[in-house]
Simulated scan of single mutants.
Amino acid sequence: MKDFFTVIGGMGTMATESYVRILDQRTHAKKDQDYLDYIVVNHATVPDRTEYILDHSKPSFLPPLLEDIKQQSLLKPKFMVIICNTAHYFYQELQDATDIPIIHMPHLAVMTMKKQYPKAKKVGLIATKGTIADHIYEDEIKNAGFDLSLGDQAIQDEVESLIYDDVKGKGVADKDKYHSILKTMHDKFGCDVIVLGCTELSFAQEQAPDHEYDVIDAQSIIADVSIDLAKKVRNGEEIDFSKIY
């Protein structure tokens, strides 16, 4: 297969499945050949990202991801996407290991937010403790000129429950819990926009989009960008990856 892209996933599997489902649904294919060419690496046994970020004595998720990147680079995809926000903790190390462009999902999400909501002042971030601790989104949001709210411990506990107990643990999204989190971030903490900084939260958004709050869904955004880039690759267009943001 030529002119394809690679999806580094499995972190978690339900979130990766959500990305692939969105990707295929939005391609608007009328026949088999209209769909995109891609490889999905569902590396479910990658060590827990949050555990390592919070405690470096835990197994690191860098070695298996480096192995994935190097293996896929041998096949020469046109670009790669990593369907896990927290895994971008090692983004630079992973990009340095290959000459294949890796799309930076958190950066892409925040740059999209800046264009879509230029008048927003306070941005809420809901994510795993690992993503909060590694400051990937925090730095991106502040550098884009927004005030940031992380909510409080009660909200963090609800977010962790939604991610780990519901989506990862049961393969379902608790609609009421998800909507309650968004409402609290908006009403109590005054957030104009809420960034879904975990792909399990993107899964919840896919399953329960019927709410009134403005959210930035990094997985949805990278799916749209994947489609756009893949179609350009298929058409033989030259892509300047430094300008996609």
Score class of each variant (00 low, 15 high):
residue 72 Q to S: 06
residue 8 I to H: 01
residue 61 F to L: 07
residue 238 E to K: 14
residue 156 Q to C: 00
residue 71 Q to N: 15
residue 30 K to A: 12
residue 10 G to W: 02
residue 88 H to Y: 08
residue 121 K to N: 15
residue 121 K to L: 04
residue 43 H to F: 15
residue 200 E to A: 07
residue 36 L to S: 04
residue 98 T to L: 05
residue 199 T to A: 12
residue 223 A to S: 15
residue 160 E to P: 01
residue 95 Q to C: 10
residue 143 N to W: 04
residue 143 N to M: 06
residue 64 P to I: 00
residue 26 R to W: 14
residue 1 M to T: 14
residue 239 I to T: 04
residue 146 F to K: 00
residue 59 P to I: 01
residue 15 A to H: 10
residue 158 E to P: 00
residue 197 G to Q: 13
residue 70 K to Q: 15
residue 194 I to D: 04
residue 10 G to Y: 08
residue 1 M to E: 10
residue 130 G to R: 04
residue 230 A to R: 04
residue 110 V to M: 06
residue 208 A to T: 15
residue 183 K to A: 09
residue 159 V to Q: 02
residue 31 K to V: 05
residue 12 G to I: 09
residue 75 L to E: 01
residue 236 G to K: 03
residue 33 Q to C: 01
residue 93 E to Q: 14
residue 146 F to Q: 00
residue 218 A to K: 10
residue 43 H to G: 07
residue 174 D to V: 05
residue 15 A to I: 04
residue 45 T to G: 02
residue 170 K to F: 10
residue 242 S to D: 15
residue 148 L to Y: 00
residue 81 V to G: 07
residue 114 K to G: 08
residue 107 H to Y: 12
residue 164 Y to P: 06
residue 81 V to Y: 11
residue 99 D to F: 04
residue 125 L to Y: 08
residue 90 F to K: 13
residue 121 K to A: 12
residue 74 L to E: 14
residue 27 T to S: 05
residue 109 A to M: 13
residue 153 Q to P: 04
residue 68 D to C: 12
residue 46 V to P: 05
residue 15 A to W: 01
residue 166 D to K: 14
residue 27 T to C: 11
residue 160 E to R: 02
residue 46 V to S: 03
residue 85 N to P: 13
residue 106 P to K: 03
residue 125 L to F: 13
residue 178 Y to R: 02
residue 124 G to V: 06
residue 233 V to K: 02
residue 25 Q to F: 14
residue 132 I to Q: 04
residue 92 Q to H: 10
residue 190 G to W: 05
residue 96 D to W: 01
residue 197 G to I: 09
residue 20 V to K: 03
residue 136 I to A: 05
residue 16 T to I: 02
residue 187 D to I: 05
residue 98 T to K: 02
residue 190 G to A: 07
residue 110 V to K: 00
residue 189 F to E: 07
residue 163 I to L: 07
residue 186 H to L: 01
residue 3 D to S: 12
residue 180 S to T: 09
residue 64 P to A: 01
